[in-house]
Amino acid sequence: MRRSILTGIVLVTGPLVLLDLMIVNPSVHGAAGAVNELLVLLAAAAAVGGGATLVAHHVRNLAAADGDSAASIVVLLGMAVILVAGLRPGSSGSSDPAVLWLVAGLLAPIAASVFALLFIFLLAAFRRGFALRVRETSLMAAAAAVVIVLLLPVGGQAGDWLAAGAAWVRDVPLGGAFRGLLIGIGILVAVSAARSLMGLDADDE
């Protein structure tokens, strides 16, 4: 029953959105617009639902003294402080000075610091990769090394040659490989999406 409701709704909403992309028809456009507006609202609802689930999970952890209590307190504190700053009466939401301060002082620097560490982790991963798949990792490391050399910030004539080499690698071998990858991923996405729209994936469940 649940599957047939789901398939039925998918069979109505999906083709409606696709039809709106392909033909110009005011009625279809209006109906697809309504589905679109609903999707935007549902995405926001999913975000709120996700937040509520996270709160419930950590409150449960704290109540049962199960898991890392300090970590749970930190998560809840982080959520609370930003929600209070943005939802308190008189606040202007995401552009409120208190929210902007939290972004500048905590959210952005923590995210940036974690991403900065990835340089070190990435190199460590390369070293480990050699122990797992030697031939593939060797080729990947060689290609990565070539790209890094071509991007070296060198001036003068050598810098011009490196830049010309970087442009050629970007346009020809790398551009060709990534175009193939993009087309391949596009085809797989299209096939997978078409299966969902025809209800084939639901039948497989």
Partner: peptide, 18 residues
Amino acid sequence: LIGMLAALAVLAEAGFRR
């Protein structure tokens, strides 16, 4: 430049060691 040379050194060292 220093970071990129360090990355190249790590890649080369790992490759030659293997």
